[in-house]
């Protein structure tokens, strides 16, 4: 016993080194699995506050770009407004049913958009994260989808009281179900860590008709998280076959969101998400 104590005392520095390494590894492994870490929420609150202070300066330099983004977004929404369209001239037509909408079936609002200020945003790391100034007290929960003025942004992984941390699309772990606008062929969008403006679309079969410039949208399939279907992901810039034997394309997609100048984002609340997850959990996996 005495020898053991002597041994430990002799190599105390080395043991301390091992212990600290062990703690670091434990934090790292736990975080990679579940995005939870010790003091993560408290730390998020503090780093969020510091980032917000920094952002008050940074935002000033981005005002012009942010304005342009917002004007473009308003233009898009004006275009979608019903009063922008002229209906068919009903005086010369015979209509059997003038009821355009089925008012007997009461629809409900599925997606609610909560605006949030981006206070911290990185594009240069291998795994990038975004901090939003909106947290649990304002109704943000983990696994909510985040979209920007031009397209998808990421997914909430951690929410503290007033700040939330978002896993950016520019993250090795962000797998987003996407589809081609032409033909509705579904695939998966991934980031390879090289260029913050480009992501990779996989699992598109070679039978699909893909060309440069085609639009990629979020799919109506939602395995991991619920993006509203039809939100812009990006445009196709390059189509290449995996290899001769493969049946799938590897498609390079330019993201529609400019991650360099992202200042506002919308956290999307999906009213039917909980129900979908509950149902999927009940049914057997195989």
């Amino acid at each position: 016993m005495r020898n053991i104590i002597l041994f430990i005392r002799r190599f105390f520095t080395f043991f301390m080194f091992l212990v600290l390494q062990g703690i670091s590894w434990a934090i790292l492994v736990k975080y990679s699995k579940s995005h939870q870490a010790v003091f993560a929420e408290a730390a998020n609150e503090v780093t969020g506050k510091v980032s917000k202070q920094y952002n008050t300066v940074e935002y000033y330099f981005e005002l012009k770009k942010t304005n342009e983004q917002l004007v473009a977004e308003i233009k898009r929404l004006y275009d979608e407004r019903r009063s922008s369209f002229e209906g068919a001239d009903s005086s010369t037509q015979v209509k059997l049913d003038s009821m355009l909408r089925d008012s007997t079936h009461k629809g409900f609002r599925r997606f609610t958009y909560l605006p949030a200020k981006v206070v911290n945003n990185s594009v240069t790391n291998e795994n990038n994260y975004i901090t939003l100034y909106r947290g649990r007290l304002q109704g943000v929960h983990p696994d909510m989808a985040v979209v920007g003025p031009d397209g998808i942004v990421g997914r909430v992984i951690l929410a503290s009281d007033n700040y939330s941390r978002v896993m950016s699309l520019l993250n090795h772990k962000s797998n987003v179900n996407a589809m081609l606008k032409k033909g509705y062929v579904s695939g998966i969008v991934e980031w390879d860590g090289k260029d913050p403006s480009y992501v990779t679309l996989r699992n598109i079969p070679k039978s699909a008709d893909v060309k440069r410039g085609d639009t990629v949208l979020t799919s109506n399939i939602s395995e991991q998280l619920s993006y509203p279907p039809g939100i812009m992901v990006g445009t196709v810039t390059n189509v290449a076959a995996d290899n001769a034997a493969s049946n799938f394309f590897t498609i390079r997609v330019k993201t529609s969101t400019n991650f360099y100048s992202l200042q506002y984002a919308y956290v999307v609340q999906d009213a039917s998400w909980a129900e979908q997850k509950k149902l999927e959990a009940q049914t057997p996996k195989n």
Binding site: L28, V38, V50
Partner: peptide, 9 residues
């Protein structure tokens, strides 16, 4: 780590 968003790294 807490600033870069990847604890332990």
């Amino acid at each position: 780590d807490y600033f870069s968003g990847w604890p332990g790294l």
